[in-house]
Amino acid sequence: MADLAVSDLVVGYGPVRALRGVSMRVPSGSIVAVLGANGAGKSTLLRAISGTLRFHRGSCQGAVTLGDQRLTGLAAASVVARGVVQVPEGRRVFARMTVEENLRAGGLGRPRREYAKAHDQVVELFPVLADRARQRAGLLSGGEQQMLAIGRALMAGPTTLLLDEPTLGLAPLMAARITETIKEINSLGTSVLLVEQNVAMALSLASHAYVLEVGEVVLEGTAAELRASDEVRRRYLGIADAVEGTLRTRTLSRWS
């Protein structure tokens, strides 16, 4: 097991600068949260770690390392092979494939015995995935799709799991369920880098957190420090207000 570290990461999509010199560290076995508003660069950070910027015509400078191995410049599949696996924003399950095939796609690179073991663990964590094994993934509910997306990533046997807004769009009960699961996965020894806009939830899980704002880390500290900080309280309340505000206008415009 090794620490995941990002240092002086600069990412651009053509002329658009999305990250401007971001550094952070995910100590082995910990949960670290990345907070930030829409467009702050959270998903970009995860893409840079996972090596999928090329799918978005993005380019990066700086370094991503796992222990003493450099991940920068590796193909996405090689990053997975080194144990760093991402659950992307919006779940992205393979909708036309069955639930079982989705899990299989997650564990393709593994020997049969490890595969069977990982499969047992995932099904124990999410029994619903076994009940729906032969159903098309596209027909699952949002919460079930999130479970499948996490289960699929676990099939690859991650030592570090990257989660991009796993509770986005889920009802409170389902969000709480996912939160519990993240805790459970971490307790089995997997490090977690958790990107969230749900600040309360993220700070309750994480030991350490970073706040991103337009591509820069503006605040960092232990979860307790951040919870106590005026700035986070203000910003956290600000975010909550903004979200409620947009919800309200959306509902109104739907009726008008």
């Binding site: 799918f55 992307p88 796609a105």
Partner: peptide, 17 residues
């Protein structure tokens, strides 16, 4: 399975290794 995953969503398939 790899083929179908890649055909459906290449980026996510790459994320799965």
């Amino acid at each position: 399975v790899a083929m179908r995953a890649a055909a459906e969503d290449a980026e996510t398939a790459a994320l799965m290794g």
